[in-house]
């Protein structure tokens, strides 16, 4: 889905999911997709007992990731998206903030 011409992303039905990494720096979910895969960024798996599983609201398999820490990731490659998720240095609280479109 493309954003509207003036650059504003439609916010209908989108959910903000926030989580902190575990002691290994992992959030516990898998992502697939990216501009190089010609697919939107989708959560393909959420491991039980991980921050992604236990945060409220919960991240679910099939959710589409729209923003990562406020950044629109629509035009980034798979590897870049993974980097954005792992880089928690963008905010002081070490929290990952995702805006997702629920499955």
């Amino acid at each position: 889905e493309k954003s509207t011409p003036n650059g504003i992303i439609p916010h209908d039905n989108l959910v903000i999911v926030r989580m902190r990494p575990d002691e290994n720096g992992r959030f516990g979910f898998n992502v697939k997709g990216g501009s190089d895969q010609k697919m939107p960024v989708i959560v393909s798996r959420v491991a039980p007992g991980t921050p992604a599983d236990q945060c409220v609201p919960r991240l679910n398999e099939g959710d589409q990731v729209v923003l990562i820490n406020g950044r629109d990731i629509a035009d980034y490659t798979h590897d870049q998206v993974v980097s954005f998720i792992k880089c928690s240095c963008e905010n002081n609280s070490n929290e990952l903030i995702l805006l997702v479109r629920p499955n």
């Binding site: 959030f27 979910f29 895969q37 697919m39 798979h78």
Partner: peptide
């Protein structure tokens, strides 16, 4: 034309 169907998922 054949296309690669390889889709990569990464654990984060």
């Amino acid at each position: 034309e054949e296309k690669d169907e390889c889709i990569i998922a990464t654990e984060v």
